[in-house]
Computed example of a mutant assay.
Amino acid sequence: MATPLSAARFLAALRAEGVKVVEVGNWRTHNRNHVGRWGPVHGVMIHHTVTKGTAATVRICRDGYSGLPGPLCHGVIAKDGTVHLVGYGRANHAGSGDDDVLAAVIAERNLPADNEANTDGNARFYGFECENLGDGKDPWPAAQVDAIVRASAALIRAHGWGKAGNTSVIGHSEWQPGKVDPRGPGIGMNDIRRRVAARLKSPPNRLLDTDGDAPARSYVVQPGDTLTEIAATHGTTAPDLARLNALTDPDHIEAGQILELG
Rank of each mutant, 00 (worst) to 15 (best):
E129W: 01
P141A: 08
K137H: 12
L227C: 06
A117Q: 13
G212L: 05
R157T: 02
G256N: 11
D120L: 08
I46K: 09
S202W: 10
I60K: 14
I253M: 07
V196Q: 03
G87C: 06
D135Y: 03
C61I: 06
G171Y: 00
Y88T: 03
L247T: 12
H84D: 09
E131H: 00
V101K: 07
A238Y: 04
A56L: 13
K201C: 09
D211I: 08
V44H: 01
E129R: 04
N118W: 10
G127C: 04
G81C: 11
V145K: 05
N245Q: 12
H159W: 10
G18D: 05
A154T: 04
A153S: 07
R109F: 02
H159V: 08
Y88M: 01
E129V: 11
A198D: 08
V86M: 11
H234D: 06
V86Q: 08
L133W: 05
C130H: 02
V220D: 12
V196L: 01
G134H: 09
I253Q: 02
E174P: 02
A123L: 13
P239E: 13
E116W: 11
N26T: 10
V44A: 09
G134Y: 10
S173G: 09
S6M: 09
V21T: 14
T3V: 09
V145N: 00
A154S: 12
K163Y: 13
V169K: 05
V24C: 05
Y126L: 07
I170F: 11
G36Q: 06
G121D: 09
P250Y: 03
V105D: 10
V180L: 13
R193N: 12
D80Y: 00
Y65P: 12
T233G: 14
I187Q: 07
W27V: 07
E254P: 05
P182G: 05
A16R: 13
R157H: 06
V83P: 07
R157L: 05
E116Q: 15
K20I: 12
T49Y: 01
A143K: 00
N118C: 06
D146Q: 15
K201R: 15
D63H: 08
V83E: 02
G136H: 05
I46S: 09
R32T: 03
A123W: 04
R206A: 13
A143P: 01
T233W: 14
L261S: 08
V21F: 00
I77V: 12
G262E: 14
V149E: 03
C130N: 03
G184H: 08
Y88R: 02
V149F: 01
G75Q: 04
D135K: 00
R32W: 00
L155P: 01
P4S: 04
H74N: 05
T82V: 15
G165C: 10
T29M: 10
P141W: 00
D100W: 08
G97L: 02
G70T: 13
G127E: 01
I258E: 12
A255S: 14
V50R: 13
I192K: 01
G39E: 02
R37P: 15
A198H: 15
S218Y: 15
R59C: 05
L68S: 14
A13Q: 05
K137N: 15
I106L: 12
T236P: 11
A55D: 15
F128H: 02
I148M: 14
N190E: 13
L244G: 13
P69V: 11
